[in-house]
């Protein structure tokens, strides 16, 4: 077990002791040095999850690419050809691929973090380490997956730039793509933390999460551009803090997307508030949950 760091010194400030365990649960929880001491555990968990997912599969890590590719084909056929949803001026393949990989980052991270307590009940009740390590490791793992898929997107983009004469976007805009990715990752992390507490307490939350993410996808510009939503309903889509980020991501890479500074600022503030609130709740409730799970 790692170094204990002094907590709850409010009752008696006594420098004789390195650590103190009291009945008060803390809002701030684990200190950063404590988390840092367990960095190897986080990387070990990322490695484990990666090994586990692809063990005993024929194609192995290729699935990281195959999954978005197969989804892409489905979307191009169903939404592009059959239903005929417009993708604006962008080639459908690029439009859908960008949407799919960013949505996957959100969906996978959120879903997996939201089951932190249920999945790790056994380990949590037998050994102490900062509980936050598990969600951090999961986020890192999915960011890594996203990186691979992003590489695929870049290759497809390069093809369109070179052979199809798609205009190369401005460097200024390109630099905003990582910002969008980071914020989407943060929202999924924060929501995941929040729901991990809820799913540990109330089992029915699991069903809600599956349903909720599917509904949320339709309120996020994954398969349609915001510019093509009727004025009357656009506010509903733009209420979703993910919307400006998806639009920003496409605007940065593909040169098409509706994003204004106020919309982006709205997303940013919502993300920051969510993250702070989720961290507080996760830390405060985490200790109590060990008694329940």
């Amino acid at each position: 077990m790692g170094q204990y760091h002094t907590q709850h010194m409010s009752i008696r400030t006594d420098n004789k002791w390195d650590w103190e365990i009291g009945s008060k649960t803390s809002w701030w929880g684990t200190s950063l040095p404590d988390l840092w001491a367990y960095r190897h555990l986080a990387s070990g968990l990322v490695r484990r999850d990666f090994l586990l997912v692809y063990q005993q599969t024929i194609l192995g890590p290729l699935w990281v690419l195959l999954q978005p590719l197969l989804t892409l084909i489905t979307y191009v056929v169903v939404f592009g050809k059959v239903v005929g949803i417009s993708t604006g001026g962008t080639p459908p393949v690029l439009f859908y691929l960008a949407g799919i990989i960013l949505w996957n980052l959100f969906n996978d991270t959120f879903t997996s973090i939201s089951s932190t307590f249920r999945d790790n009940a056994q380990v949590f009740s037998k050994v102490y380490f900062p509980r936050l390590i598990i969600p951090v490791a999961r986020l890192t793992g999915y960011l890594f997956n996203f990186g691979i898929q992003f590489g695929l997107l870049i290759l497809v983009l390069a093809y369109y730039f070179i052979f199809q004469g798609l205009p190369v976007p401005d460097v200024k805009w390109l630099l905003l793509a990582p910002v969008a990715i980071l914020l989407v990752g943060t929202i999924s992390f924060a929501l995941g933390l929040f729901f991990s507490v809820l799913t540990a307490k109330y089992r029915d939350m699991n069903y809600l999460i599956g349903l909720g993410t599917r509904l949320l996808m339709f309120l996020t510009p994954v398969i349609y551009p915001v510019g093509y939503v009727s004025e009357k309903w656009r506010w509903l889509v733009q209420l979703n803090p993910l919307t400006p980020l998806f639009e920003l991501f496409r605007r940065a890479l593909l040169g098409q997307g509706v994003v204004t500074f106020p919309l982006f600022a709205y997303s940013f503030i919502v993300t920051a508030v969510l993250l702070l609130a989720a961290l507080l709740i996760f830390n405060k409730q985490g200790d109590k949950l060990i008694d329940t799970i």
Partner: peptide
């Protein structure tokens, strides 16, 4: 003492690094 669960009242204070082996094969 292993910091896995919190007490309802009272304190545990200590000095130094604590390791607990409550189960063989955790993790």
């Amino acid at each position: 003492v292993s910091r896995i669960i919190r007490p309802s009242a009272g304190f545990v204070r200590g000095r130094g690094k604590v390791s607990s082996l409550l189960e063989v094969g955790t993790g």
